[in-house]
Amino acid sequence: MNSTEVAIKFSLGLEQLSFDIDGQHFQVDKGLSFIQSNSMRHGVLDVLAIELMIYVIEEILESVPIPYAQAKRAISADALFQQVLTLFFPNQHSIDRVQFESGFNAFIERREYYVCKVAEQGVFSLVYFVFLREMMHHWNVIDIKYESLETAQLH
């Protein structure tokens, strides 16, 4: 990482979201459950639900005072992030903006396929995926890396 880039450590939970950037900690008491319940009507992840989800996520992101100008790299040890990587980006531990946008477009085009793929564990990994995409857009995140808890504890 060069001196003009900033690192964001984040965790997106069902009940709260947390972000650490430049020694500052931000916590939002609206998690993935809040996003899902405010966007998916009757538990259906359709096109309207995705549009509503993006709107809810944008509102949350705008509530956290993170400036856009500087490029940022993000890192997380969330299990849901690992599920997203396995589902959309097999055998990768990080994704850049171009890869992410390609994965998001595939998700939109084949939404029913992905909903069926995650049916057992619920749609939270898909809500997580949409949140990551919006975070990249709104906070100028150039890539996101998965770091296992074991690796994170060594740093």
Rank of each mutant, 00 (worst) to 15 (best):
Q27C: 15
P67G: 13
V123M: 12
F100D: 07
F26Q: 04
N91A: 10
A69W: 12
E120P: 01
E15Y: 01
H155R: 13
E147K: 04
V64T: 06
W139V: 02
M1V: 09
H155P: 01
K9T: 12
T151G: 05
G31T: 01
Y55A: 08
L12N: 04
F129Y: 09
D29T: 11
E62K: 05
S94M: 02
V84Y: 00
P67N: 14
R111H: 11
I95V: 14
I54A: 12
R73D: 12
T86P: 06
Y146P: 00
R97I: 08
V98H: 09
A77Q: 04
A79H: 11
V64W: 11
G122C: 06
P65Q: 04
T86W: 10
K9E: 12
Q82Y: 15
L14K: 06
P90C: 00
F26A: 00
Y114F: 11
V115T: 14
N91W: 11
F107T: 08
I35A: 03
M135P: 08
E101V: 09
Y128R: 01
F129R: 00
D29M: 13
G43E: 05
P65A: 04
V127E: 02
V28G: 05
S102Y: 12
D46W: 11
E58P: 07
T4D: 12
S39F: 05
S37Y: 03
A77E: 09
E5R: 15
G31C: 08
L45H: 05
E109T: 13
Y68W: 15
H93D: 05
R110A: 15
A152E: 13
G31W: 00
L80M: 05
E15R: 05
I66Q: 15
E109R: 10
R110G: 09
Q83P: 06
H25N: 06
Y128A: 00
F89D: 01
F89Q: 04
E150H: 14
Q70W: 13
V64A: 02
H25D: 06
S94F: 08
H25L: 07
F81C: 03
I75Y: 14
P90M: 05
E15W: 01
R97C: 10
D96H: 08
D22W: 03
R111K: 10
P67Y: 03
E15H: 03
L14G: 02
D96R: 14
H137V: 08
A119G: 09
N140I: 09
E120L: 11
Q82D: 11
E15G: 00
I66S: 10
F81K: 14
S33P: 14
G103T: 07
G43F: 00
Q70D: 06
Y113M: 15
N105F: 09
I142Q: 14
S3M: 05
G103Y: 00
R111F: 07
S148E: 04
D96V: 12
M136I: 04
F107V: 08
V47F: 10
A74T: 09
F124W: 12
E101H: 12
N2W: 08
R97E: 07
F104T: 03
F81N: 00
I21N: 12
F107K: 07
M53P: 07
M40L: 03
